[in-house]
């Protein structure tokens, strides 16, 4: 007999609703990131940008999405069909999976239940993010290889080696942060920052390294070598068309949103409201939680703007420069940061 009644069905329902909201919200935000990117690019290059669809071009992402859906779908004859479809699906899946451990806000009370605005508070939160980030490269590699095109394959290999290289520096820069917090749970890290100061004050170098690595992990300029169009035509998604191409492009924007959320959580207090003591205003209830979410979203928006600002300002690295920066500069810097943090912690404890 199947005994499934032991499961708390209400909790399951609550989590399913939360997952649906988070996924829809990240897709919606990713959609408007494309609009923001075009508008910011236009502003920096002294143009107007999209302004035809709706007032101020606000419906442009919808029009772009419709265009991608209605385009003819071409699967190359010599490609590996199953893997060709699997590639963009994996890219999108891994982009969405990271949001499971991000604490989006404090607890809210609805219908007499206290609902945590985090899908899963696992005690290895940061490592989970790392695992998913390191799996994200399979979407690119499988897509590049199965297209059966030399340019795609080269771009995919470039992308994979870039992600592997920068993951190391990213992990090392986080070890210093973990030595201070003593916990891997993202919710605990946010709670600690709410009581004291934001981690960026204690770990400025760690944050800088993490930010550079996040740029590289998201394949954003100046690290977008896997889609360097002047060397590799279009990169790993050259053979893709229609919404499969759309998935690859879209996954990049979802990644950008999630990595901004991770950075805001780890270094900038997550849903902490700046210069405001939350524990003194617990009688505000749900409004306090909503205000926290608004602050979190604002922090994320600032990071996303920073990503775009950098994209339209800095030119692309050469491949050897990219590898030099990753292996010979960021990793030693991160190691030094780790040693200094350890020494300071020991000194303070004495």
């Amino acid at each position: 007999m199947i005994n499934l009644l032991a499961i708390d069905w209400l909790l399951l329902l609550e989590k399913l609703i939360l997952i649906a909201i988070v996924i829809l919200a990240s897709l919606f935000i990713a959609m408007y990131e494309t609009y923001a990117e075009r508008k910011i690019a236009a502003f920096m290059q002294d143009r107007i940008g999209p302004n035809r669809a709706g007032p101020l071009g606000i419906l442009q992402p919808l029009a772009d999405g419709m265009k991608l859906f209605f385009k003819e779908e071409i699967i190359p004859n010599s490609s590996n069909k199953i893997l060709f479809v699997l590639g963009p699906s994996l890219a999108m899946l891994t982009a969405m999976m990271t949001c499971a451990v991000v604490p989006w806000g404090g607890d809210i009370n609805l219908f007499g239940r206290t609902i945590s605005l985090q899908i899963a508070d696992v005690n290895i939160g940061i490592l989970y993010v790392f695992a998913i980030v390191s799996l994200g490269i399979y979407g690119v590699m499988i897509g590049g290889w199965s297209s059966n095109n030399k340019y795609s394959l080269l771009a995919a290999l470039r992308g994979a080696s870039q992600v592997i290289s920068y993951e190391l520096a990213m992990g090392l820069s986080l070890i210093a942060l973990l030595m201070m917090s003593g916990s891997l749970s993202l919710k605990t890290i946010v709670a600690q920052q709410m009581q004291t100061h934001w981690n960026v004050l204690y770990q400025p170098l760690g944050f800088l390294i993490f930010f550079v690595c996040a740029l590289a992990e998201c394949n954003r300029t100046p690290f977008d070598l896997s889609e360097a169009e002047n060397e590799l035509n279009m990169g790993y998604h050259q053979e893709y068309s229609s919404m499969k191409l759309g998935f690859y492009l879209f996954a990049e924007y979802v990644n950008m949103f999630i990595s901004s959320a991770i950075m805001a959580t780890l270094f900038f207090g997550g849903y902490d409201i700046p210069f405001f003591n939350e524990s003194a205003h617990t009688d505000w209830g749900n409004w306090l939680a909503l205000l926290g979410i608004a602050c979190f979203m604002l922090k994320i928006a600032i990071f996303i703007f920073l990503f775009m600002w950098i994209r339209w300002t800095v030119p692309r690295f050469r491949y050897d420069q990219l590898m030099n920066l990753g292996w010979k500069k960021l990793i030693p810097l991160a190691l030094a940061n780790m040693l200094i943090t350890g020494a300071v912690i020991l000194w303070l404890k004495k």
């Binding site: 490592l127 790392f130 695992a131 390191s134 799996l135 399979y138 590699m141 994979a160 592997i164 993951e167």
Partner: peptide
């Protein structure tokens, strides 16, 4: 297990 085997070693295998 996921980070080391699925995330790093298998990527190099695929390479």
């Amino acid at each position: 297990n996921l980070i080391v085997y699925a995330g790093a070693i298998m990527v190099l295998f695929l390479f």
